[in-house]
Every structure is written in C-alpha cells, then in structure tokens.
Write a protein that binds this DNA or RNA. Structure first.
Length: 690
DNA sequence: GCGCAAAGTATTTTT
DNA sequence: TACTTTGCGC
C-alpha cells in the first residue's frame, strides 16, 4: 500500500483515505483536516474502488455536520447526485431509520413517537411525584446514563449503591413501561433499541450489514457505550472483515456528561487487534502561537495517545488577555474591539467569533452588539424546534401519527383552549389508567359517559373526531403517488385549529407576529420536504414520517443566517468550526472551568476539570489567526455582583513564557514541543492525577 | 375552566 | 434579571 501523498493531501491524510483493508482509527488533532479526509475517502471509495454509495454510511455528531459533509462530498464527486444515495446522518437519525423499518420486531408500531427531553422531564416529574427540579434532573440523568450504558432497570436496581439510586432505578422501570404504553421512545432509545434488536435478531442484523457495508464515524471520541456497541454490531459478523474508519481526537472529548467515554478510543484497539492507527498531527488552521498555547493547556491532562500538533504557519500575533471590571463592560469592550478591528483591517464581520461557556452569557453580548450595530448570528442557543409554538404544532402531528401518545394528546387538546381543562383530563386519565388504554381511546370507551358531563365530553369527542378524520386523509397516498397531500393536510390542520387567532388572542402583537411567522416557516419547511424534493436522502416522506425526523433537528436548515455576521456560539457548539479571529469570553474560575455540582464525589472532580480543560482547548483551537481572551473581576449573577477570579487555564497557556522576549523568528519543531510538553507533564500539576 | 398578577427561583454543555 | 410557578378571582 502506497502512502504517497495524493489528492493534495499530506502523507498520513492520504494513508487514511486509501486504507480500506480493515478497521482504521484516525487520530486527528484539531485543524488537521479530518473532514477533508472523510469526504475524500468517500469520494475515493465510490470513484476509484467501485463502492456503491448506498452501502456507505458516515455518522456525524450533529445534523448540521451531516448536511455539510454530504454537500462537501457532492462537490467532490464527478456525479454529485450520487451523494444523495449515501447515508450521512447522526447516530440518532440512523436509529430512527432502523426503528421505523424494524419496529414490529420490538413490539413497537412504525409510527412511534419520539419524546423530547421536556416530555421526558414531565414524565419523570409525574412518576417521582415531586416538583423538585434538581431531583427530577438527577433522576432523568441517571436514567439516561443507564440507558446509554445498556443497563436494564432490574440491573440498575440490583446494583443501586444507595436509596437515591434505588429510587431512580424504580422510576426508571415505570418510565420504560410508560414510554412503551405511549408507543414512544426517547433519544437514548433511538440507539439502545437498535442495539438490542441487532443483538437478538441475527437476520435483521445481517440485512443491515449487507445494506451498510462501510461505516465512517466522525467525532468518535464523543460516542457513548451504546453507540460503540451499535458500531460493533454493524461491522462484525457475516464472516467478513470489519470495515470502518473512526475519526476522533481524545483531546476534544467534551461530552462525558452525556455518557460519552473516551475509553472507546482505547477500547477500539482492544476489540479490533488489527486496527490501523493513523495520526494526523499537522495543523492547517492556526498560527504557531495559538497552537503553543493550546498544547500547553492540554499538556496538563493525562494523555491517552501521544500526539504533537504543529503548524507551518508563522508565529502569528500574540494572544491577548483582557481583564474587565464586569460582564457588561466585557461585552461592550469586545464589541468595540471587534468593530475597530473590522474597520481597520477591512475584514468581514463573519471573520469574528465570540465563544462562551454557557448560553446565558450570550444575552449581554447580544445587547452590546446591538448597541454597536454589529450584525450577529447565534448558533447553539435555543433550538428552533424547541419553541413553544413549534412544539404545539408538533404535538398535533405526533398525535396524528400515534394516538397512544398521551403527552401529545394533552398538549394538543389544550392548545388552543377548547373548554377542556385539568379536571376533565384528570378524570379521563384515571379512566384510561383503569382500562389500560390511551387517553384518546378512553374518549370513546363505554363507561366514560358516566364519569364526564356532556359539556366535558362534547369537546373531547369533537376533537378526537377531527384528529381521526385528518389522520385518515394523511395516511392516504397523495395524488400522483407522491406525498403531495401533506401540504393539504397541513393547511387543513392550521385552518381548523385557528392557531393564528389563538396567538394574537393570547399574546401581544409583536410576540404573536413573530411566533406566527415561525409557525409559517415550519409549515413551509414541512411542505418542502413532504414533496420529496428537498430532503437529503431523496426518499419520499409523508407528514407523519417527517414528524419523527423533526424531533431530532435543532435547526431550520435552509433558513439561512446572515452570511456576513459575527458568529456567537457556545464552546460545545463551536466544535468542528474555525474562525480567523476568536474572542473567548468569561474565562473565569467557576465559568471555565465551570463549577459543577458542589456535592459531587471528589474523584470525579479531577475528571471534570480535565473535561473543562478540553473545552478550553477546543476554544483556543477554533482560532486561525488571532485569539483574545477576556475575564471579569465581577459578574452579575441573579441580581447581585459577584467577585470572580481569573481562570487557571490562562496561566496554563504559558503566554508569558512563549511571548515575553519578542523572539520573532522562533520556530519550534515538533520534537522540541514534545520535549516541552513532557517537561510540563513531569512538573507539579500531575500529582493530583496519580 | 381560564386568565391575570404576584411571588419565587434558578442559572452548563445537547442528540 | 428574566422566566416559571402558584394563587386567586371571574
């Protein structure tokens, strides 16, 4: 196998592209061109090695990344339309696809609902009979971690260490039962259920293995146990060699809190002994100074793999750190600095990014940018599909698809108000519980007449008849065999529920207007996809199927942001992106590193700091040319100003060491950097780990 | 059953 | 500070 550079790639990159003899792990440092490797590899497989694009799956971490990757492959291909045949999606979307086709094997109907985290939150709230927010979240978290770790409720209960855990485990059991009575799944199930299916049913597993013969997994360091299990089940068996490429970077693992385990990287070598390991260490993104700082910070973490990033770009401009009196000043100063720099260097606004740890930090910054009349776009904030008005509409669609979906029923039947209130629903709920049926079914079940007055039952039955009627039309194939009736069904729905009227009735004009616009955008978005035109995988989808996809989306693709605007983003949402000029704000103890749960066990404390450090590393390595950091001496929390200290990570960047004497010609070799890093590892810091 | 007003409370990251 | 929950009156 030759690993001579090809496609304008460097040695290791083209090696990663060309290698198709077995499983491969590409350790790709920040900015080392991993997306290029993946897209080139797919292109190479199709055009030079005769792979059918239908048998290649690329799994990404977000829908946005999936979309981008597909577009990039389309650009590389001689026949761009082939890109549509690929499976490029998140693990979760792939899970939906599998579940939809194999639902019957799991005792699930193919029109199952997908519950979002809010639905699950309310469910836990009901089951735990509490309003304690912290407690509910803790239980929700426990359940999610168990599911991700493939732990059953029985096992969870048996292994419970204390009463708290036992309580969570008991709720976990009824949580699972309730979801199944709703014919619903949660996010974690989208991966857990396919795993169980593939484990128990070899025929189905073979079928999918034949269908998807080669897997590429991006951001592998952020996969959890369950996802790894799915990967293994999809690539092993059939007496063939496991074929996949995983791409990841242990230094950028920032989702441990969601059950991701970096150990999956190490496990890969154990589970696949002939794993080909390829390291991408040349950075094409940042200046040497930026990389130096990033390397210095991450050197404080224990290492899984030895890796040394280097760059051929020059030393670059010094990294600046600004101390600010308070968070409002911070926001204003950053806005002013960007504005000045923008006019001075004649840069585009979109060359600048402001990164922060938590979404709430965006508020002040937004205000400051507005004051300075600087255009901005926010990514990673509240998702479009989480807006109340969108969830209202989705509730109707969910109910249309699946009448066992009680939460959707409750939401739809009460929004807009139609004379059905809490007490009616309570009676209905008790009745349905007694007869083990859904709320919807209970409305028509014999005996309900005795429990409810005509005044209560009337609107309920009207509502259910309306849903039934609409459902029968939604399920009929449209004219010309397309999903064309989707548009008609949606229009009828919107017309019948008087949603616009409801908004203007309950809200102020401005708010109602903006919400109604969102609804219109959403409906249009659905219509576009219903016609089978715009959807990426080119498959026909009716409204009901679209509803399932919508549950996983967080952004309205296509509804494009201002192309020339400053990017604002959380550090998490910035992963995989790059910007010429980066401002990292709020670099304070308590924010970055974030102070977590004060009564969390001590042994996790070190690990938590390590994850925060990786987050810092991700932030630093987003910058191509300049990087500026700010921190505040005081910050408004709640109503009061609170004192803040500068983050330890600033010192760890070793700015004074690297920058003090202006040795402009200093160029550090990879070897030298490695030595430096080892030195750092050997000195103080490490003792907290050992 | 519903809407309004006051008080209380929470602040990490996301498929 | 902003948002949510609770309570009360119609």
């Amino acid at each position: 196998m030759s690993n001579a550079p090809q496609f304008g790639l460097n040695g290791p990159q083209s090696e990663a592209v060309l290698y198709l003899d077995g499983p491969a792990l590409v350790l790709a440092g920040a900015g080392s061109g991993k997306t290029r490797v993946i897209t080139q590899k797919i292109t190479y497989m199709i055009e030079d090695r005769g792979y059918d694009p239908r048998t290649i799956a690329a799994l990404t971490f977000t829908n946005k990344a999936a979309l981008e990757m597909q577009e990039r492959v389309a650009k590389l291909l001689k026949q761009p339309r082939q890109a549509k045949l690929l499976t490029v999606s998140t693990f979760h979307s792939l899970g939906v696809k599998i579940l939809r086709q194999e639902a019957n094997h799991l005792g699930l109907k193919d029109r199952f609902s997908i519950m979002d985290s809010d639905d699950c939150y309310s469910l836990v709230q009901d089951l735990a009979i509490t309003t304690d927010k912290q407690l509910i979240r803790r239980i929700q978290n426990d359940i999610s971690l168990w599911k991700n770790g493939l732990v059953t409720p029985e096992l969870a209960l048996r292994n419970a260490k204390d009463e708290d855990e036992a309580q969570s485990a008991r709720i976990y059991a009824s949580y699972v039962a309730t979801l199944s009575s709703y014919q619903a799944v949660d996010f974690d199930d989208l991966i857990r259920l396919p795993v169980e299916l593939f484990r128990d049913n070899e025929t189905v597993r073979d079928k999918w293995q034949r269908r998807l013969r080669y897997l590429l997994v991006d951001e592998y360091q952020d996969t959890n146990t369950c996802q790894y299990e799915l990967l293994k089940l999809m690539v092993t068996g059939l007496g063939k060699k496991p074929m996949f490429t995983a791409v990841g970077d242990d230094d950028q693992a920032i989702y441990a809190w969601r059950g991701a385990s970096v150990e999956n990287l190490a496990n890969l070598q154990v589970d696949f002994p002939d794993l080909k390991l390829i390291k991408l260490e040349q950075n094409y993104r940042s200046t040497t100074r930026i990389l130096q700082a990033a390397n210095a910070v991450i050197a404080n973490n224990p290492k899984l793999f030895e890796k040394a990033l280097w760059s051929e770009h020059g030393l670059g401009e010094p990294i600046k750190v600004h101390a600010m009196p308070n968070d409002e000043q911070e926001a204003e100063q950053v806005a002013i600095m960007i504005s000045a720099d923008h006019f001075e260097r004649k840069n585009k606004w979109s060359d600048y990014a402001i990164l922060y740890r938590g979404n709430h930090q965006a508020r002040v910054i937004e205000q400051a940018l507005r004051n300075q009349r600087i255009p901005y776009t926010i990514s990673g904030g509240q998702s479009f599909f989480d807006k109340a008005e969108i969830k209202d509409i989705i509730a109707y669609l969910r109910l249309l698809a699946n009448q066992d979906d009680d939460p959707a029923f409750i939401r739809a039947v009460t929004t807009p108000r139609r004379g059905i209130g809490q007490s009616t629903l309570e009676v209905l709920g008790a009745f349905s519980g007694q007869w083990q049926c859904s709320l919807f079914e209970a409305v028509f079940k014999g005996g309900i007449e005795a429990k409810l007055t005509d005044r209560q039952l009337g609107p309920l039955r009207d509502f259910c008849n309306f849903i039934n009627d609409l459902e029968s039309r939604a399920s009929r194939p449209g004219p010309a065999g397309s999903g064309d009736n989707a548009a008609q069904v949606l229009d009828d729905l919107m017309e019948a529920i008087h949603y616009e009227h409801y908004l203007y009735d309950t809200l102020e004009e401005r708010a109602a207007q903006s919400r109604w616009q969102n609804v219109l955008d959403f409906v249009q978005w659905l219509k576009d996809r219903g016609r089978g035109g715009k959807d990426r995988d080119g498959e026909e989808k009716n409204v009901l199927e679209l509803t399932q996809m919508v549950a996983l989306m967080s952004m309205l693709e296509g509804k494009d942001e201002d192309p020339d605007a400053i990017r604002m983003s959380t550090l998490h949402a910035s992963k995989g992106l790059e910007y010429p000029h980066v401002f990292l704000v709020g670099v304070e103890e308590g924010i970055l590193p974030h102070k977590g749960d004060p009564d969390a066990p001590v042994e996790t404390l070190a690990q938590r700091i390590e994850e925060e450090r990786r987050l810092m590393y991700v932030g630093i390595t987003r910058a191509k040319r300049t990087l500026q950091l700010t921190w505040c001496k005081k910050r408004k929390r709640g109503g009061e100003h609170v004192h803040c200290d500068v983050s330890r990570f600033i010192a760890e960047m070793q700015l004074d060491v690297g920058d003090a004497p202006p040795k402009e010609t200093e160029v550090i070799s990879p070897r030298e950097r490695l030595a430096r890093m080892k030195e750092l590892l050997a000195t103080p810091k490490t003792k907290e780990i050992t």
